[in-house]
Design a binder for these strands. Structure first.
Length: 385
DNA sequence: AAGCAAATCAACCGCACGCGG
DNA sequence: TCCGCGTGCGGTTGATTTGCT
């Protein structure tokens, strides 16, 4: 016997909700609260199935929904969380107050997935993209309409005010550092760094022959950062503190990818790349750090995902390469804040909560000020942690 | 001005999960 | 342990709108 349908379809309305139906549903929920979705339509006098009512409420009628376009900051959070969580839209939405899983899912599918695809690993014959290439890349120019919000701006639709009392439903699973990618052609090959300045302030530094450090220009395509095999000094990459943050809050795929490397504001990171069988392994170790990240690139049959949980402070990332040659990032991430995973999770939650308690729109619109810099520093500190 | 293509997103659908009996 | 129910989630669809030709 098959499972009974959630509702009897015969005689029930489908499709777009009318203003009258919205009003009925909203009034009923205000009076009786959420839940009991199956019986709600009957009790409220709606010719809709319970699922439809719930969806309408959750995605549209709730008073704490945030309207308007997704901001750059929100986009960044979405990208980062998606890198860690995958298509767990409800979980991602729980970190974006006022945004629904459906909204985020739609935004991802219509905006971000195209961007990310653009940054996917190129074919074998093509060189890895440079940072500047990636930053410049835009999704295919839209031919069609603008955002729905823009479309509606002339309509008689008042966006609900964001409820300042809403408690962010932070989930303990997140946040994590985003999945990581390290492009490596082979052991002897230079890795073409594509780290660009981002709103989290990850700035590549170069180590000169005299040992002095200087920020590398991510805007100079002729000067990609060079990562030498472990032990090398010249061209060694140093990840330095905040410097030269671009006012433009941007976040490229590789920004996301590289942000997961074990950064240390004042440390030196060695990266070694090894090839074993059909997978490559990039190991990044920050000097003076009791932590290590290992990024494994390989076929699905060989990708290391187990990780070594006993390693102190170890962060593991992995991805698999599908048949078409794209890297499919998984989230085999083991929290590695020393041995105190709970502390790491708490720090992440506090970070996000703090970020979103402030007016993100204001943050985005202002030039770099003290508040922004403080937030960026905090986010960097969190990522570093 | 009309037709077409593309983009957006509200809504639907089916499955999975948790819970209580 | 099994079963049924209620609910939530993620993938997909299709109506709608807009820009381009």
């Amino acid at each position: 016997m098959g499972r009974a349908p959630c509702c009897e379809k015969v005689g029930l309305r489908r499709g777009r909700w009318t203003a009258e139906e919205d009003a009925v549903l909203m009034n009923y929920i205000k009076a009786n609260g959420e839940g009991y979705w199956r019986s709600l339509p009957k009790n409220a006098g709606l010719l809709r199935c319970g699922k439809s009512c719930r969806l309408r409420w959750v995605n549209y009628l709730r008073t704490d929904l945030k309207r308007g376009n997704i901001s750059k900051v929100e986009e960044t959070v979405i990208i980062k969380l998606h890198a860690s969580l995958g298509n767990r839209w409800s979980l991602i939405a729980s970190h974006l107050p006022g945004r629904t899983d459906n909204e985020i899912k739609n935004y991802w599918n219509s905006h971000l997935s195209r961007k990310i695809d653009t940054f996917r690993r190129p074919s074998n014959d093509e060189p890895l993209p440079l940072a500047t290439d990636l930053v410049k890349v835009s999704p295919p120019k839209r031919k069609g309409r603008t955002s729905r919000w823009a479309m509606k701006k002339n309509k008689n639709l008042l966006p609900p005010k964001r409820n300042p009392n809403k408690v962010t439903n932070a989930h303990s699973d997140v946040p994590l550092s985003p999945a990581t990618k390290a492009g490596a052609e082979d052991k002897e090959t230079t890795v073409r760094e594509s780290l660009a300045s981002t709103n989290v302030g990850i700035v590549p530094y170069s180590l000169g022959e005299d040992g002095a450090t200087s920020p590398s220009s991510s805007n100079d395509p002729s000067n990609p950062l060079m990562l030498s095999p472990s032990g090398g000094r010249e061209g060694e990459m140093i990840l330095g503190p905040l410097a030269g943050i671009d006012e433009e809050l941007s976040w490229s795929f590789d920004d996301m990818v590289y942000s997961a490397l074990p950064l240390e504001s004042s440390g030196v990171m060695d990266m070694s790349i090894e090839r074993s069988g059909d997978h490559e392994e990039a190991r990044a170790v920050g000097s003076g750090l009791e932590r290590e990240s290992r990024i494994t690139l390989g076929s699905s049959s060989s990708t290391t995902t187990s990780g070594d949980k006993d390693r102190i402070g170890g962060d593991w990332f992995s991805c698999v390469e599908d048949d078409s040659g794209n890297w499919d990032w998984e989230n085999q991430i083991i929290l590695g804040h020393g041995n105190d995973q709970a502390a790491g999770e708490r720090a992440g939650q506090e970070m996000l909560t703090w970020l979103w308690e402030s007016d993100v729109g204001e943050w985005e619109s202002q030039s770099l000020g003290e508040v922004e810099r403080e937030k960026q520093n905090a986010m960097v500190a969190w990522l570093l942690s």
